[in-house]
Design a protein around this nucleic acid. Structure first.
Length: 362
DNA sequence: TATTCGTGGAG
DNA sequence: TCTCCAAGAAT
């Protein structure tokens, strides 16, 4: 196998090398129209591209899979999603995390239908104005769904380019420099495939640990590899430690086995999601862990303590349970039956709390 | 610029 | 058990 061009100055562009690799080694993903299918005339559906990109924000392909399938089955078009109840969208999103994405998803769908005639804006600037779409997602949808030559920079691309150019500036300060470099390499021909190729390379070859440089189509021009330690990139600012927060959760069970739930506030942690009554456990405040924080007097017994790790703090939640002989006079929420409980908009931490109090509930 | 937003898998 | 971190956005 002959080396192409000189090792120090390959004549083939980065884009050409990446696209040739992508044609052979791309991943098969449910929302992706692969090069062969594009060749046959198939085009990416902006709704599906957008939906997948929102779900994939800070979320693994594996985790997104079943949620993407469920959303597409429930709401096949952006008009269907715009017409949906927000509560149903939150229920379908429950477990995927970063719940503001779900509410912005609904708002963006409404904007597309009511402000853009039912079609997604076909350029990055227009897309960027929709709720939940930032620089990355605007570029990704513009490039993949509308063939626009936009730079698309996610965590994979940051890793690939900081290694390729041995960028010593730590993240996030290096972002503008990375974006400039990527913009220089974006081809007018296949900008969507170029973006997906760079991300696939980062996900399968140029991995955070133990990258498979021997298989990399860019190995001859990677400055980090030339220097001998590609794994050193990207440099990152030191992260701060997670504080521990404590709170108490109260699982009230009525004679029929129904559970008292309530809806969380519309802003902040787990905004708009459902929960069992719980003392405060925001990032700023340690909650009351005693039975004094109960929503009403009852024979509360401590069922156990669960640990749950959020992005910026760890929560230790004391879970209390009470078997009630009759429903108390409270209007803080609603009573969810054993049949309904699985379909509620319960974040994972609340499902853990319920499972702690009632091991066979799910 | 720094912080606030979840969750689960890999090593 | 612990650390990292995954197709980031909003404030």
């Amino acid at each position: 196998m002959a080396r192409s061009a000189a090792q120090s100055a390959p004549s083939e562009s980065i884009a050409d090398a990446l696209l040739a690799w992508y044609d052979r080694h791309h991943r098969e993903l449910p929302w992706r129209v692969t090069p062969d299918r594009q060749q046959a005339g198939e085009r990416a559906d902006p709704y599906r591209v957008w939906l997948s990109e929102i779900m994939l924000q800070q979320t693994t392909v594996q985790a997104v899979g079943p949620f993407y399938a469920k959303f597409l089955a429930l709401w096949p078009t952006v008009a269907d999603l715009a017409a949906a109840d927000e509560e149903d969208v939150l229920k379908a999103w429950a477990g995927l995390g970063y719940y503001s994405r779900a509410r912005n998803l609904k708002r963006a769908a409404e904007a597309v239908v009511h402000d853009h005639g039912g079609a997604f804006p076909p350029d990055a600037a227009g897309l960027r104005s929709l709720p939940g779409i930032g620089d990355y997602t605007a570029g990704a949808v513009a490039a993949i769904a509308f063939n626009r030559a936009e730079p698309v920079v996610d965590g994979n691309v940051e890793r690939v380019f900081t290694r390729l150019f041995a960028i010593e500036t730590p993240l996030p300060a290096a972002k503008p420099e990375i974006r400039r470099l990527v913009a220089t390499e974006v081809p007018d021909d296949r900008p969507g495939d170029f973006a997906q190729a760079t991300m696939d390379l980062g996900a399968t070859i140029c991995t955070p640990r133990r990258p498979s440089c021997i298989l990399c189509p860019l190995r001859d021009r990677c400055m980090a590899l030339r220097d001998g330690d590609p794994e050193r990139f990207p440099l990152k600012a030191a992260k701060k430690e997670k504080p521990v927060r404590r709170a108490a959760a109260f699982v009230a069970v009525d004679p029929a086995g129904a559970i008292l739930l309530r809806k969380r506030p519309g802003t902040g942690l787990l905004a708009g999601m459902s929960e069992v009554p719980t003392s405060e456990f925001t990032a700023r405040l340690d909650g009351d862990t005693s039975v004094d924080a109960a929503p009403f007097p009852a024979a509360w017994t401590l069922a156990g303590t669960i640990k749950h790790v959020f992005t910026h703090f760890e929560l230790r939640l004391d879970v209390y349970r009470a078997e009630l002989s009759e429903r108390p006079a409270t209007n803080i929420g609603w009573w969810s039956t054993r049949d309904d409980i699985s379909g509620e908009a319960l974040p994972t931490v609340m499902k853990k709390a319920l499972a702690c109090a009632i091991p066979d509930i799910f």
